[in-house]
Simulated scan of single mutants.
Amino acid sequence: MRDDDATRRRTPAPTCTRLAAAVAAVVIVGAGLALRAVAVGEVAKYGGDALYTLLLFALVLVAAPRTAPGRAAVLALALSWAVEFLQLTDGPAYLAGQSTAARLVLGSTFNAPDLFWYAVGAAAGWLAVRRA
């Protein structure tokens, strides 16, 4: 058996990856809602930040199931950081005032420690998929 044959057999089919990522996304949203219901303060905030990026990681795999785990983690982290840096403008705060969905997706206020917790979420996604 050649190396590329072994790799092909270990790589899950895109449909399986997409389904697993979609289920994970639902579980991540549930975990985020549960965290907000039972935790307060920094635990809820920073745990939510990590889960936000973990959700983006799962959604990357839903949209593009053949994406390598490292690439999906980098993309999810870049998107999270882009949204956070966008909060340095007035746009997200304005939109958050207009829509609950915009507030949940875009936030409203820049907070530098969030950048670290987004990296934690991306690393968690990468580790989970690498170990699977």
Rank of each mutant, 00 (worst) to 15 (best):
Q87W: 04
S80Q: 04
R10S: 06
V60S: 02
Y94M: 10
P113S: 03
A64F: 15
T109E: 04
T100I: 15
F116A: 14
A82P: 04
R131M: 08
E42T: 13
A20P: 00
G47R: 06
M1R: 14
T11V: 08
G30T: 13
Q98F: 05
Q87N: 10
E42A: 14
A124C: 08
A76P: 12
T53N: 09
A39N: 03
L19T: 14
V40Y: 01
R71G: 04
L79G: 12
A101F: 15
A44S: 11
T100D: 11
A96Q: 05
L127V: 15
G70M: 06
T17M: 04
D49P: 00
A20L: 09
D3S: 12
F85E: 00
R9A: 15
Y52S: 02
A6V: 09
R71T: 15
A13D: 12
A37G: 03
V120R: 14
T53Q: 07
Y118V: 10
G125Y: 01
A24Q: 04
A13K: 05
V62R: 02
A96C: 03
V27H: 03
P12Y: 03
T53E: 02
E84Q: 02
T17K: 04
V83S: 01
A31S: 10
P92F: 02
A102Y: 04
L127E: 13
T67D: 01
G97D: 06
I28W: 01
P14Q: 11
F85D: 01
W117K: 12
A122E: 06
A6H: 00
V38Y: 11
R130H: 03
P113Y: 12
L59H: 12
P92N: 09
T67V: 13
L75N: 07
L35K: 11
A31V: 11
A31D: 12
V27N: 05
T67Q: 07
L54N: 02
T15Q: 09
L51T: 07
R18C: 04
L104F: 09
